[in-house]
């Protein structure tokens, strides 16, 4: 069967099955199990109302539990077993093996570097652009163009930036913008930007910053618009300059939003995989955790160490998870 037809059938069957499930299970509760008539009508209505939320929730909860909650536990278990020994329990052996690998520490250091640079740069640039475009007549067009990389896949972005970083042999014409400018200004030989250890990390980060700045800008720009005008007017009356207004009046008021943007980008950074995979595949000292894990899983076929590194990512995410849950609970009150 052609996959496209299969896809169409899946939509029809999937959506149809969902709707049918919701419809018929409702009918079952209302008509058969707890009919709202006869001697027990009142009690039945109450019971039906107790059951119904769970009917509505069941498919989603089932999928969430099976596809997201269970894997956390299972990965934790797998990280303490060895596949070669038939899945025998080996305690923390996988972890100690992982901690003794220099490649893991390289990934860890790089991830920390990403964690410092990318959220900070994206948020700062996003904030600057949001402020600059705030009162421009063509601000919306500018914002929309800076926001555009959000729609481009990490892989597509990697190709785009690989062309920017392209290096040709010395004395031939450079077709990568960066080297063309570098040779033009400095007169030196062109550089292999992606294979120069340590600094190549930053050239990879630029790609993610390029993508995430638009996201930060959109959210921060909405927050800037939400600042009460009176506070700014009062500051102007008191003689504050534009920079004072920005740093002392505006930024403190949108501080919670800055935190939200920061943590959201942090989450993206912790899971960054595609860019490194497509541009350097972790060579030349650019390994990151998610790519290290992919290597272990699908190249080395070592599910134990692979799971252990996934758990490391989970541990790094946990503080944000807790913060989010606490925040959400506070809002609901």
């Amino acid at each position: 069967m052609h996959p496209a037809i299969q896809g169409l059938m899946t939509i029809v069957i999937g959506v149809g099955a969902c709707v049918a499930y919701f419809y018929f299970s409702n009918q079952l509760v209302d008509r058969v199990l707890f009919p709202a008539k006869g001697p027990n009508a009142g009690r039945n209505i109450n019971r039906a109302n107790m059951v119904r939320p769970w009917l509505f929730l069941f498919p989603a909860l089932f999928a969430l539990t099976l596809y997201l909650a269970y894997p956390v536990v299972e990965t934790l278990r797998l990280s303490m077993t060895d596949r070669d020994q038939g899945g025998a329990f080996v305690g923390l052996a996988n972890y100690s093996q992982m901690f003794s690998e220099p490649k893991f520490w390289e990934a860890m250091t790089n991830n920390m570097l990403w964690l410092f640079v990318v959220p900070a740069m994206s948020t700062a640039l996003g904030l600057i652009v949001a402020q600059l475009t705030d009162r421009l007549r063509w601000g919306n067009i500018a914002k929309s163009l800076i926001f555009m990389p959000m729609a481009i896949s990490f892989v597509g972005a990697s190709v785009i930036w690989k062309l920017v970083y392209d290096a040709r042999p010395p004395d031939t014409e450079q077709i990568g913008v960066l080297n063309a400018m570098y040779v033009w200004f400095s007169g030196n030989d062109p550089q292999q930007w992606l294979t120069t250890p340590f600094w190549n990390n930053f050239f990879l980060m630029v790609v993610l910053i390029w993508i995430q700045t638009g996201f930060a800008m959109v959210i921060l720009s909405a927050a800037l618009r939400g600042i009460p005008e009176e506070t700014i007017e009062a500051a102007i009356v008191d003689g504050a300059g534009p920079f004072q207004i920005f740093f002392k009046i505006k930024v403190p008021q949108i501080y919670p939003t800055i935190m939200v943007v920061w943590t959201t980008i942090t989450l993206v950074v912790l899971k960054i995989f595609d860019i490194v995979f497509a541009m350097t595949n972790g060579q030349w000292g650019t390994q990151v955790l998610a790519n290290y894990m992919f290597d272990k899983l699908f190249r080395a076929n070592d599910w134990g160490v692979g799971s252990a590194s996934a758990i490391v990512i989970m541990v790094l995410v946990t503080p944000i998870l807790v913060w989010n849950v606490v925040q959400a609970r506070r809002e609901m009150r």
């Binding site: 596809y67 909650a69 894997p71 797998l78 989450l267 996934a310 990512i313 989970m314 995410v317 944000i320």
Partner: peptide, 12 residues
């Protein structure tokens, strides 16, 4: 679950 990394779900 909003922030659970996808990476954990792969092997299981």
């Amino acid at each position: 679950l909003l922030v659970v990394p996808l990476q954990l779900a792969l092997i299981p």
